[in-house]
């Protein structure tokens, strides 16, 4: 996991217990966690100030969908991993093809997805 060393991951998750687990898993794998951020506006503001290589995004932030941030990050060429309990058909058409991890997920799954996205980058 040497390639993960120091790699910064932007984490958006409004459920703190879940965020805690993601954070633990990523740190354990050698990543640096930026966040976690719990609101849409807070995460958009932070995304513009922080440097990171990849983002894991919860879809529903206290009723608000994270799509604006997704669009912005995609436009910046940042790989995005959606972490959600929604199925693909619940998503708007254009987001259905994005990499997605269904909740609940375990640590190794998360790390594998993050790694593959970084590799594809």
């Amino acid at each position: 996991m040497t390639e993960a060393e120091g790699c910064r991951v932007f984490v958006v998750e409004d459920e703190f217990l879940v965020a805690l687990q993601i954070e633990d898993d990523l740190i354990a794998a050698g990543y640096v966690v930026v966040g976690p951020f719990t609101t849409l506006q807070g995460s958009i503001d932070a995304s513009r100030e922080q440097n990171f290589e990849i983002a894991t995004l919860d879809l529903n932030l206290r009723g608000e969908f994270v799509y604006p941030l997704v669009d912005e990050l995609l436009a910046r060429g940042v790989p995005v991993l959606l972490l959600t309990g929604y199925t693909a058909s619940d998503l708007p058409e254009r987001f259905r093809a994005l990499p997605r991890l269904a909740k609940p997920f375990n640590g190794p799954e998360l790390i594998r997805k993050v790694e593959s996205l970084l590799a594809a980058k």
Partner: peptide
Amino acid sequence: AELSHRVKNTLATVNSIARQ
């Protein structure tokens, strides 16, 4: 979708509680 989201969120939370 909401139900799915909540159930899965709850499970994720339970998962986290368990781990903690």
